[in-house]
Nucleic acid binder design. Structure first.
Lengths: 342, 342
DNA sequence: TTGTAGGCGTTATCAT
DNA sequence: ATGATAACGCCTACAA
């Protein structure tokens, strides 16, 4: 099926055009300063005729510039990730970079392996949506190899360029909104692991809001579910319910997956929204308010996170990594029944 | 920030270990047959000490085997795509392949460009979720360059390995289900373009079911919406509604995005489900039945499509492309209120 | 059991 | 204006 005839190389183009491969190389790289119109045209037509395409592999070997940017995605299954990737892809494409994506399934070991592998292929920079367990490793790569930008999930200290949304404030604001509506018993539903900085900040925003606004130490109102095991969600819902029987209750969900799980769980237990539980939280897909239009959701601009990460990385690549790490925060938005806060 | 000291190469490892680079190369490729335990150990420790990693670029240039598989995704924004990618990624990883993903935003020109670019990087095979406008090009690549597998969206003639779900039958079955429930006025909501084979087959399944079961030529019951412009959906809903005022009506949606749009549109127009419109159709995300538990949805196994595509591609790579194009069809599932058909 | 040398397809440095 | 040649880092006959 496949032809065994090997591909056209710069040598055959040179031969066909009756010039040396140096000249072809010059042509390919747009160095026309001293090139006669004649050879220029000849080369162009030969290239078209032979359908010659330069090998990026050879070019990379020689120049150590692959024109590729690597992306590490903690969990490609989430909608957040796909939109992030779209943002990254659009910017990289506009700048002539190819994108290599690696999905690491929230596994820190895979994260390290894939980064090594991207480096083996000489990517010029890496955007990392990190699992959160490779901080030292990432810092080392960033300092000794290629620039890194952390997308959405950051590190405690700002040692690497980062782009994220205002997780802490947004969560605080939303709890405030609930308190204003008269809710006092507010649970925080989340997923492990808490190394994820976005989750962690949201958790902290929740805890601080509960403390400051209601003077409640809410650690034991944090329920950790396993999104792959429905039972864990249902158990958590029942537990929370038993604790505040016949009282006004609200649930804040840490992300879209959790929100989906909580809504499904509530439905399965035949509870009612918002009578039994008022529900709100982070979400990205646009289905939650369709399902229950009264649910306030925090929508993140994952596309913009992607865009900004890519821009930051390319800037860093062009400046050869000089300068202090930068941090860019994007605003999320609370979409409620009638109005929007941001 | 970045060190300028160049990377460790096979030469420096050889020097440090006191052997020639040939021996190092042998070590790297597991050719231990004639290697003394002593040098073997020495090499191992030198490699660890120097943290040497072979350049995949050089390896690829020499061998024309990059260990990479390319993936072309028509629209990475859809949930279908992310799950598909996960399936592909898992299989490729298990076989030691790296995955390079390119999102082409439903643009046939980009599809061609990215495929060229993947080839420039010597990917060993490509999984294509095609826009549908590059059939000849894809066939040529498949025949002269590297194996291709079409995922989810196929071509009319089977000239390339393909994996898809039973779109036609599943749609037919679902219309049948609606007819049995007493619905006669059934609209088909879809998105352009119809080159997309999955959409096309669903449309055909719809038309044939309408003809065979109700003896209706339903061409003018096909409404094409633009998922980026809400007004088009609302206009279509109103049109359909005006046409069958006070009659039992059902809407079948061609995919998850359309379903989301239709549900949102119905909500905005303050119509009721299922009183004003009975709604059902394709969906992947798991939210539809959460929103309206009575909505029957066809769930595709996009993860499996990814898995099968990758397996098929790797098989083809290993057999050097010999043999006739294969077609694998996976079963989708209709999830209704109580029971499941498949 | 190990080493030498040439080549993979480019680019860059000198020449001319 | 264009060419010859050496490198980039690895693999692989062929030698030893």
């Amino acid at each position: 099926m496949r032809e065994e005839r090997s591909l056209i190389t710069i040598n055959e183009v040179a031969k066909a055009a009756g010039v040396s491969k140096t000249t072809i190389s010059r042509y390919l790289n747009g160095k026309f300063e001293y090139m006669s119109q004649d050879t220029k045209k000849r080369i162009q037509s030969v290239i078209e005729e032979l359908k010659y395409r330069p090998s990026n592999v050879a070019k990379t070997l020689k120049s150590n510039k692959s024109g590729m940017i690597g992306v590490i995605i903690a969990d490609i299954g989430s909608q957040f990730s796909s939109i992030l990737l779209k943002g990254i892809g659009d910017v990289c494409e506009a700048h002539g970079y190819q994108v290599m994506i690696a999905n690491v399934d929230n596994d820190p070991r895979k994260e390290r392996e894939y980064i090594e592998s991207l480096l083996d292929n000489r990517v010029e920079g890496i955007i990392v949506n990190t699992t959160g367990y490779n901080d030292d490793f990432l810092v080392e790569i960033n300092e000794t190899r290629v620039p890194i930008v952390l997308a959405d999930r950051t590190m405690k200290e700002l040692k690497i360029d980062s782009v994220a949304t205002n997780n802490y404030n947004m969560t605080f604001t939303t709890i405030e909104y609930l308190v204003e509506k008269g809710y006092k018993n507010i649970a925080f539903f989340t997923e492990p692991p808490m190394k994820n900085s976005a989750r962690h900040l949201r958790r902290q925003g929740y805890l601080d809001a509960m403390k400051n606004l209601l003077n409640v130490s809410a650690e034991d109102l944090i329920y950790t579910i396993d999104s792959t095991d429905k039972k864990t969600t249902i158990k958590a819902i029942e537990e929370f319910n038993n604790r505040y029987k016949n009282k006004l209750k609200a649930i804040f969900t840490v992300n879209g997956v959790t929100l989906l799980n909580v809504l499904q769980g509530i439905q399965e237990c035949h509870y009612k929204i918002p009578e039994d539980f008022y529900v709100c939280g982070y979400e990205d897909w646009g289905w939650a308010r369709l399902a229950y239009s009264e649910i306030p959701v925090i929508t993140q601009h994952s596309y913009e996170v992607g865009v900004e990460s890519a821009k930051m990385l390319i800037k860093r690549i062009n400046s050869k990594g000089k300068g202090k790490p930068k941090y860019k925060e994007l605003e999320a938005k609370l979409v409620t029944g009638s109005s929007n806060k941001s």
